[in-house]
């Protein structure tokens, strides 16, 4: 594989999942809230746990974004270090 194509596949692999993971986090938080409201408390607490779950889901979505940034930064740092090592040699 040529350099550009390889880089594109690598980028797709690194960032292609961001949107999906974000949406999934929100759905899981929301579903958990609805489950607590309807099944555990029989609808007595009706909208509250849904909203709390939704908030946690959105927060979890942003957390996955931060994780992606953290991994990318670690990659960058490692590459910079390798470059420096090569220069020093």
């Amino acid at each position: 594989m040529s350099g550009v194509k390889k880089e594109m596949v690598h980028l797709l692999a690194n960032y292609g999942h961001v949107g999906f993971t974000f949406a999934t986090s929100i759905v899981i938080g929301f579903a958990g809230g609805v489950l607590l409201d309807q099944k555990v408390f029989d609808g007595k607490t009706a909208p509250w746990f849904t909203f709390i779950g939704l908030a946690f889901g959105i927060a979890a979505g942003y957390k996955t974004l931060l994780d992606v940034i953290r991994v990318a930064q670690a990659d960058e740092k490692r590459q910079a270090r390798e470059e420096q090592d090569r220069h020093e040699r």
Binding site: S25, I28, G29, A60, G61, D67
Partner: peptide, 9 residues
């Protein structure tokens, strides 16, 4: 909860 949700995601 945030960590658990993002892990289940």
């Amino acid at each position: 909860p945030i960590e658990v949700i993002s892990n289940l995601a």
